[in-house]
């Protein structure tokens, strides 16, 4: 049942729990139990909202920063990552295989703000060897959701 709940709420975390129980064909209390347990076990780590900030007219800049680091004695990648992810400006940090070590996703109000964070906070960290900043120009799809406006139902409305 866990997997079924997760598959469902990964796409729609706002579904009414009573409805979710009906759709899955189980008791509502069972769904609530599982959810609470999965939250406690940190299987469910949060509930977020996918927003097209462009439509709100609010300035938002996102960048993906490729970071190369030297893991320091006694502190592997995890420690370095922690130094980075503790900044609230940092939206996500991934350890990456390939030409660099971390992919850091940053969010700021202006290009300048993001660039400044990289030069003032990220680059000076002891273990950081180099950074490469890629600004995001347009978001097409996020968390499996296409950002462009919904297509409407174009089916013929009555079919036998």
């Amino acid at each position: 049942m866990r997997e079924k709940i997760l598959t469902f709420i990964e796409k729609n975390s706002r579904i009414d729990l009573k409805e979710l129980a009906i759709v899955l064909g189980v008791e509502e209390s069972a769904v609530i139990n599982e959810l609470e347990q999965m939250e406690a076990e940190h299987i469910i780590c949060g509930y977020h909202t996918i927003i097209d900030w462009d439509k709100v007219g609010q300035d938002k800049v996102m960048a993906m920063i490729e970071v190369r680091v030297t893991p320091q004695r006694g502190m592997g990648f995890d420690k370095v990552a922690e130094r980075i992810y503790n900044y609230p400006e940092v939206n996500a940090v991934y350890l990456i295989s390939g030409g660099f070590d971390f992919m850091v996703i940053l969010e700021g109000k202006t290009l300048r703000e993001v660039a400044q964070f990289v030069s003032d906070k990220l680059s000076p960290l002891d273990s950081v060897l180099s950074t490469k900043t890629n600004f995001i120009l347009k978001k097409y799809k996020d968390h499996g959701t296409v950002i462009a406006s919904k297509t409407k139902d174009e089916r013929i409305q009555m079919i036998p």
């Binding site: 139902d153 089916r155 013929i156 409305q157 009555m158 079919i159 036998p160």
Partner: peptide, 20 residues
């Protein structure tokens, strides 16, 4: 019914026999 539904604004049709 098809003719009426296609003319009607905000109608919801549950009359479609093909996948969404």
């Amino acid at each position: 019914f098809f003719d009426i539904v296609s003319e009607m604004k905000d109608a919801i049709s549950l009359g479609v026999g093909e996948p969404d």
